[in-house]
């Protein structure tokens, strides 16, 4: 249940650590796994090694407005066969306007619902799916 002002973890290497939901794209009340949202980057990754991060090319900065795909939700997601999945946190992956991921790697598990919503690029980047 991602809605306006929800804070999510960003689990790719785009440079964002924590983002805030600014809008759910589509006629939806709230976003679930596989839904697209607009986010504001609130915290950058690698605050300690800021110079390093800048050198290695943190692709997004604090205050940037980006699109993202929700990959994990705290809210239970029921599948067609009656099984449910629930994660401990809300997480997303940043994408550009055309739907390609900004980062090149994802660290962390992502939900299987991405397959149904045609996010195969993100699924293939993820180390594990549940």
């Amino acid at each position: 249940m991602i809605q306006l002002k929800s804070m999510l973890n960003c689990i790719d290497n785009s440079g964002a650590a924590i983002v805030e939901c600014a809008m759910v794209i589509g006629q939806k009340r709230h976003a679930s796994i596989g839904d697209r949202i607009v986010v504001v980057v609130q915290k950058q990754r690698d605050a300690g090694a800021a110079g390093m991060a800048a050198a290695s090319g943190a692709k997004v900065k604090r205050g940037d407005i980006r699109h993202a795909v929700v990959v994990r939700t705290r809210q239970k997601v029921t599948r067609r066969d009656g099984s449910c999945i629930k994660f401990e946190d809300n997480a997303c992956v940043l994408i550009n306007k055309s739907g390609d991921p900004i980062g090149s790697r994802i660290n962390g598990v992502v939900g299987m619902e991405l397959r149904k919503k045609k996010w195969s690029r993100i699924l293939s980047m993820a180390p594990s799916q549940a």
Binding site: R72, K76, D81, G82, S83, C84, I85, K86, F87, E88, D89, A91, N107, G108, V109, P127, S128, A130
Partner: peptide, 27 residues
């Protein structure tokens, strides 16, 4: 027939919980 079990695990530092219906043919 709706009997289900709740399993909890950690996958890559993130807690994951899943309900499974035990009589499901997919299980």
């Amino acid at each position: 027939i709706d009997t289900a079990v709740l399993l909890r695990n950690h996958i890559g530092k993130v807690g994951v919980e899943m309900w499974f219906k035990i009589y499901n043919r997919n299980v």
